[in-house]
């Protein structure tokens, strides 16, 4: 069955892309004429300078060394510095991602190399906001998630998308911290949103193990724990997947986990964030600054369900 009309990018969103250019989040990397999500070759990515961050003054892309050494990847240990040390031995090539589930009419097994040759790599500079109230600005390289999902030919049962991280007790010293593989999930409309991507690189370098090599989810309007790393399975499913953090602590973490400075974590505030690599704090923005692009997905902005 082809994609339902409700699952196609709404025209309003299409129009908003021009407004995003005005936001300037991507204007430095992509020529205006090519549109926001136009494909660019890897070597086209220019030097990163200051990025206009819409009302927050200037934001600077976080340094690669910082992005690669300050990580949450509990399968390799709980401390921020653990993954960059312990994950080096994770073998990420060859690697394939299985796409299936009852909602996929055309399931398949994709090698990372196939994905790279099939889809052009796009560059996106996104704000990153961790639920622990720290933030970075990350220049990702990857492919739009929507393209991969549409290739699997979603049917009417494809209401949610479930992502599964590698679970390997041999290679991951802390693989069982959550009692099983790391699971994340999105609604199908979130998953086919043009901002959502499957990243394979940062700063035109392949992802390192600690940042989720070889392929990880990127959903910039949500808290960082939604960005499943080292993905081995993507399933189109009918019922809402129980993501790992929701299962771990349902009072503190839920399914949607959209960034909202007005809904605090039960134990700390989400009103502001620490920018890694610099001092002081900045205010957190609704949907991490992407409200114009994604707010239409969530009819009731006072519903806490959407924001933890």
């Amino acid at each position: 069955m082809p994609i339902k009309s409700s699952e196609i990018t709404p025209e309003a969103l299409y129009r908003q892309r021009r407004r995003m250019i005005a936001l300037g989040l991507a204007s430095l990397t992509l020529p205006l004429t090519s549109g926001l999500f136009a494909n660019t070759k890897e070597q086209d990515m220019p030097e990163l300078g200051d990025i206009d961050s819409d009302g927050q003054g200037k934001l600077t892309a976080t340094k690669l060394e910082t992005i690669n050494s300050y990580n949450n990847y509990y399968e390799f240990g709980f401390a921020k510095t653990d993954p960059s040390q312990a994950a080096k031995t994770l073998i990420t090539s060859p690697w394939s991602v299985e796409i299936g589930g009852e909602g996929a009419d055309k399931p398949g097994l994709y090698d990372i190399a196939d994905l790279h040759s099939e889809y052009a790599i796009e560059n996106r500079i996104y704000r990153f906001r961790c639920v622990e109230a720290w933030a970075m600005v990350i220049p990702w390289n990857g492919i739009p998630l929507a393209k991969v999902i549409k290739a699997a030919q979603p049917n009417s049962k494809a209401r949610y998308v479930r992502f599964q991280t590698l679970h390997d007790t041999q290679q991951m010293p802390n693989a069982n911290w959550a009692g099983g593989p790391y699971i994340e999930g999105l609604t199908i409309t979130e998953a086919i949103h043009p901002l959502a991507m499957l990243a394979t690189g940062i700063y035109n370098q392949p992802l390192e193990q600690q940042t989720g090599a070889p392929i990880r989810l990127v959903v910039p309007w949500k808290y960082g724990f939604k960005y499943a790393k080292s993905i081995v399975r993507i399933d189109l499913v009918e019922s809402m997947p129980r993501n790992t953090w929701w299962r771990q602590n349902p009072n503190e973490y839920g399914f949607y986990a959209n960034v909202n400075p007005r809904f605090d974590h039960p134990r700390w505030s989400q009103a502001s964030e620490r920018v890694i690599g610099s001092f002081g704090r900045q205010k957190t923005l609704l949907f991490n600054g992407y409200a114009d692009q994604v707010a239409y997905l969530y009819p009731d902005l006072s519903d806490r369900r959407y924001f933890y």
Binding site: W268, S269, A271, S272, R274, F279, G280, R281, K283
Partner: peptide
Amino acid sequence: TLEFGFAWALMWQE
């Protein structure tokens, strides 16, 4: 100092 840079309002929110 390092974390909040004397931003008392943000500290209070926290």
